[in-house]
Design a protein around this nucleic acid. Sequence first.
RNA 1: GGGCGGAUAGCUCAACAGGGAGAGCGCCUGUCUCACACACAGGAGGCCGCUGGUUCGAGUCCAGCUCUGCCCACCA
Length: 812
Amino acid sequence: MEMEPLYRPQGVEERWQRAWEDEGHYRADPSSSKPSYVIAVPPPNVTGRLHMGHALNGTIQDALIRWHRMRGFNALWQPGYDHAGISTQAIVEKELRREGTSRLEIGRDAFLERVWAWLHQYGGEIMSQFRRLGCSLDYERERFTMDDGYVRAVMRFFVHLYERGWIYRDNRIVNWCPDCRTSISDLEVEHIDVDDALTYARYPFADGGGHVTIATVRPATILADVAVAVHPADERYAGIVGREVVVPVVGRRVPVIADERVDPAFGTGALKITPGHDPTDFEIGRDHGLPELTVIDLEGRMTGEIPELLVGLTEEEASDYVVEWLRETKQLEKRESYRHAVGHCAKSGTRIQPLVSLQWWCSMDELARPAIEAIESERVRFHPAVHGRVALDWLRGIRPWNISRQLWWGHQLPIWYCRDGHVVCAETEPAACAECGSTDLERDPDVLDTWFSSALWPFATLGWPDETPELRAFYPGHVDSTARDIIFLWVNRMIMAGIELLGEIPFRDVIVHSIILAPDGRRMSKSLGTGIDPVEVIDEHGADATRYGLLKMSSTQDVRFSVGAIEEGRKLANKLWNVSRLLLANAGDAVADARPRELEERWILARIDATRAEVEADFASYDFAHAVDRLYHLTFDDFCDWFAEAAKPRLYDGDADARATALAALERLLALLHPVMPHVTEEIWGFLPARESRLIVAAWPEADARFAADADALVRVQEAAERFRRSGVATPLDGDEKRIFDAVVRPERAGGPAGANGNVEAEQERLRREISRAEAMLANERFVERAPAEVVEAEREKLERFRRELDALGGG
RNA sequence: GGGCGGAUAGCUCAACAGGGAGAGCGCCUGUCUCACACACAGGAGGCCGCUGGUUCGAGUCCAGCUCUGCCCACCA
């Protein structure tokens, strides 16, 4: 195949993606004797499409996997999907609504069939998009959290926790999403500022004579009031504790109680207590033995012991009624506008309805303790470390986890109830009730929180609870790479589950990558219309360019998407392509063999080796932005601008040593770039003479001490070139240095004297400024006295050098 | 309300352990030089958010302030 002057990634990339996969290079072998290196991909939602966060995270993981594969590791990058309970169910429910039916109408079994049918048709797109990015996941090992084996793992986990006594059922207040029709965990609640009205209502004393005023933002919940509370030290209300007040509208007589959780400074200092619909009130109610009344049902409609005409109204309609009632009875003191944070469902955006409901809970204290220890002792390390401290804060203040969801799509709880109300927890359906022997068993209809199963990802994908070869070979893994928004939801829970079930942490390093924002600084989001489709970026610029650009953007916390970074990658690919054309077109029958004879050859091999060491350090500390920056400058500045230019004459002359050495240098350069830009490097690799193996499985370049001393060998020539370009004045050089200077710098003059014309004065002026700066420093006695000796000495040397250079320009 | 970050060239971002402010893109000038015009060479462009402090010396350390982003949170 011909190498054209313009590198076109389209076609080339797909070809290599197929070849690598078909040839089995992505496969990890559990029976291999090599050391393993394992990353489990954060399982994307099975319904999802690749977004920029996936693309960045995929690139990070693939760079690490490819790097380790080249270094001789048995590298496993585990692929798969999450069933994403709420999202998936919502998509299919929406489809049913369009057809004029509903899940309740068609029933549970038919509904689940519909979900599976939908998934078979539309689900599981992302792995193909990861392929298009060049990601070397072991695709044959794809797992789904709803696979039979995986379900078994989830059941085992539940029963394990149940038998430990950590899973229990309780009537407690939960975050209810009226839209999703399920409870959700605290982590899935977003607090958003909303404008509300604060209603001040007078509650008359039951025995006549006066009233107490409370403030509320939800007048409809007055109907479920069971007490009024004041702070025990609040002198204004000292006399009323123990008396009774009459709840508006419903006329219920309720006590005034004292509780320290009441803030005397807020509102009137008197708080209506509604345990059925407020988390704080729920706690206070429990402690005071108060009833828990519910007046809003699971659909958000008014219900319970309330006036008949209110039943079925929305909360808003009921609130209007209550306020009007208060106004008419002169019990409305005032209403004022009030802005405060209100919980919303992270999935649907609907305002959360706190209500008391019978749910399954998991006590987290015992699970959290060893996870805290693992992070504190840095057996699990977060990068950047600040996320580890945040993770610790969360674990230390951990609260019970509401794990049951009122959905159909997901892992149904392994809980059965018999006629007599006994509860049986078993991995598979029991034949009879363990306590009474009844065979009339009914399974709990609820399913588990999606994240309950995600917690098992690092080992359930390897066959746990069975003792599989995969589990032995690939657990514990090494790296988890993720965005910071799922550290609590997912990362912490994997650590807890891994330690609890296998006795070992699931990974050593957690990489928390940056979030890529839209170019205008807003979040990339479909609803805002600010999203940029990574697949389109790949189609336009190539996967290599996209990978390079994403890594370049990965350094800081949040970064705005910059197409310039992608284009930089595209240019790097093209540059690499063209310098390879130069070397290959002038290779004759040479094969790659490092036989450095000339200065520039020793120098480039040293520069490559030095960069190798730096890139290794960058990768090891997960600093990908600096790694790609170094590779860019190694390619453009060192390899192309200096080495290739200096070597050209001898390549053209047919110098066999020069040709073999140049090819050897190119090989090393391609290897260093492969983890970042796998396609173009593999493509060029294929053109190298006598090359049969693939770069993807080639050895990462070894450290080579032979060249260590030569990394700075061109400093004098480069300084001379700099001076010449600035001022047009040539520094006397001889031997190799003169030859290289002539080869690299002289051809530039062919295009005209633009740069070097008339700049002597400007350069003299620059040097004079530097000289006076250095002189001023050295004239400062306190600087000379107090600064470290080597700093002072370095300043003296700089001064002398500037003076020499000025002399050379005739400016002294 | 609590916590964590960010503010450096027109744009996106670097600057390791305080010691001559950098890169890429964009812009201006020149060159289609037999690897590459997705290139090469040169150039312009910076009160390093503000105010104080520490220091011989501060983009870098400390304090306060302004703006901005994120996380956590049961003040109705």
